[in-house]
Design a protein around this nucleic acid. Structure first.
Length: 537
RNA sequence: GCCGCGGUAGUAUAGCCCGGUCAAGUAUGCGGGCCUUUCGAGCCCGUGACCCGGGUUCAAAUCCCGGCCGCGGCACCA
């Protein structure tokens, strides 16, 4: 039974516990829920009568905590107003931000892991004909023109705030040129479709921005459509059009898109559309972790296969998940940070604290010693319950059951302690072994540390102010390597743990007493080796 | 450099729109105590912030102006 429970993932344990022992789970967190963070109202909801939000990632890579902000907020708002949440893949750049084939699936998985479900899903590269149609409509209305100026040439003209020679050509001429673009007549860089904007704008990037450009997909094919299309919409065209066509009422996106709203406004005006409400969100940093997509990518590339996307130093959702952070905690943090334009640095301490509170009660505890040192203990009585210990897996949650730790018969009894704790024993002269007995130092040399039994009474230990430390019997233990990120380095701690660790299931969470919470990654039963990830204190 | 947006304790956030109830609330961190066979959890106590300078006002974290600092944008990227 115990092993069965322990073999479940934490999520499963929590779920079952909530169903079967609600009093245990709920008792621990009394009035924590009342002050659950609520979102401020969205602007102008009455105007639309409904709320439709979207999360629109570029599937060129896996998503990270920073992407979770707009994703979770968009989702939460859609649910809050009983509206619709849309997932839209923005993959209209096969050349520079080439879509990663596996990213479409990975992003869906990560969102589901976060607990987000979407009502509609779209992939922009599969909607090309729609964009072409809208483009032609826009050209007919005189809102855009095909520009044949070389890039540098246009830049110069723009700098002088003057119209380029193609700007005033008749829409029918642009329409004809656009068709020629579609036919593959032009090569990369030879023609673009530009949206007419205010030529006087102080921001040059705004002026007659590019709506479509030519990408030679025979040399840089799109993973979904291959070389079928050579004329590709830019972000501002595709996203702008889709937000309208999909009936998006509220756009929540990073503040780096602020100028894009301005650009798209020209498009909307020309088409006679009304722009949705926009909420700009600040950037998120995760203390001590790498969130930059480009840095993560380059680190992986340079590592020659040794670093993967779920590396503990990255702020990817894959990494957080591997680290044993519950999705609810990420949601909680995002809601806490809230809907603001200002940037925020999420502190790891905060995440760890929230996570710890959620898992503690459902997580079995066992003993592990880091940097183990053997200690031989003499004079331990042959009393059965001093030779085979029955230990509770959690002092305040009996449903986690008990386990036994056998120290063997005869004397001395050999155990391992953490090097740090051995230092305490050497310095203080005595120490208490958790749930076992009190011992005092007998002798020590470089090869051997010997101690003797001084009693089983915990009260006596307390009165004497003995430090209580965890230990592992030398006759039966598992070897553990604990991967722990320290700054931007990964350390691997060598430890020995109670052999019951071998009966855990891969993926389960355990608390190593006085060490911290760990997540089991790999168990090699025959070799008695276990690989774990250090989660947090 | 130019344009735009921000600035409440170590971190995050509430309050700012509609000035007084804010000698600023909450979480986390930190210090201490209780409890506990963990350096965890729980409970209790404490610590710590309105970027700076002017102005308006009886009264400013809240309104106005200037400065400083930070962030974002300045692509045929998203």
């Amino acid at each position: 039974m115990v092993n069965y429970v322990n073999s479940l993932s934490v999520e499963e344990q929590l779920r079952i516990a909530r169903e079967r022992f609600p009093e245990v789970v709920e008792a621990k967190k009394p009035e924590r829920t009342p002050e659950a963070k609520t979102l401020p109202p969205l602007p102008s909801v009455e105007k639309y009568g409904t709320v439709r939000t979207r999360f629109a990632p570029n599937p060129d890579f896996y998503i990270h905590l920073g992407n979770a902000r707009p994703a979770i907020l968009s989702y939460e708002y859609a649910r809050m107003y009983k509206g619709t949440f849309i997932l839209r893949f923005e993959d209209t750049d096969p050349r520079i931000k080439t879509p990663l084939p596996e990213a479409y699936r990975a992003i869906r998985e990560d969102l589901r892991w976060l607990g987000l479900t979407w009502d509609e899903e779209y992939i922009q590269s599969l909607r090309m004909e729609i964009y072409y149609r809208v483009a032609k409509e826009l050209i007919s209305r005189g809102g855009a023109y095909v520009d044949l100026c070389p890039r540098e040439e246009f830049r110069k003209i723009k700098a002088q705030r003057r119209p380029c020679p193609h700007r005033d050509q008749d829409p029918s001429k642009s329409l004809e040129l656009f068709d020629r673009m579609l036919s593959g007549y032009f090569g990369e860089g030879e023609a673009v479709l530009r949206v007419k904007t205010d030529l006087e704008s102080p921001d040059p990037s705004l002026i007659d921005w590019v709506a479509f450009r030519i990408i030679d997909t025979s040399s840089t094919p799109h993973p979904l459509t291959g070389d079928k299309y050579v004329v590709w919409p830019t972000y501002n065209f595709a996203a702008g059009v889709d937000d309208k066509l999909m009936g998006v009422t509220h756009i929540l996106r990073g503040k780096e898109h602020a100028v894009n709203t301005l650009k798209q406004l020209y498009l909307y005006k020309a088409l006679g559309w009304e722009y949705p409400e926009v909420v700009n969100l600040g950037r998120l940093k995760l203390e001590g972790m790498i969130l930059s997509k480009s840095l993560i990518k380059s680190t992986i590339r340079r590592s020659a296969g040794r670093v993967s996307v779920d590396d503990l130093r990255f702020g990817t959702l894959r990494s957080l998940r591997r680290r044993g952070i519950l999705p609810e905690v990420i949601r909680e943090i995002i809601l806490e940070v809230g809907v603001k334009v200002s940037d925020a640095t999420v502190s790891w301490e905060n995440i760890a604290s929230l996570n710890r509170k959620r898992i503690d009660l459902m997580t079995p505890r066992l003993m592990a010693v880091v940097d183990p040192v053997e200690v031989a203990i003499w004079e331990i009585p042959e009393t059965p319950n001093l030779r085979v210990l029955r230990l509770s897996n959690h002092p305040s949650n009996e449903s986690l059951g008990v386990r036994t730790v056998e120290v063997g018969s005869g004397n001395p009894v050999r155990v391992y302690l953490s090097r740090d704790d051995v230092e305490i024993l050497l310095k203080e002269g005595s120490i208490r072994l958790l749930e076992f007995c009190n011992i005092a130092l007998k002798s020590y040399s470089r090869e051997l540390i010997e101690a003797y039994f001084t009693g089983v009474d915990v009260e006596q230990a307390r009165r004497s102010g003995l430090k209580i430390v965890q230990w592992v019997p030398a006759r039966d233990f598992a070897r553990v390597s604990i991967v722990k990120p320290e700054g931007l380095k990964l350390r691997v701690l060598k430890a020995f743990a109670e052999s019951s660790l071998l009966r855990q299931r891969e993926g389960s969470i355990v608390q190593f007493v006085r060490v911290g919470f760990i997540k089991v990654e790999k168990i090699e039963s025959k070799l008695r080796n276990v690989k774990v990830v250090f989660m947090h204190d």
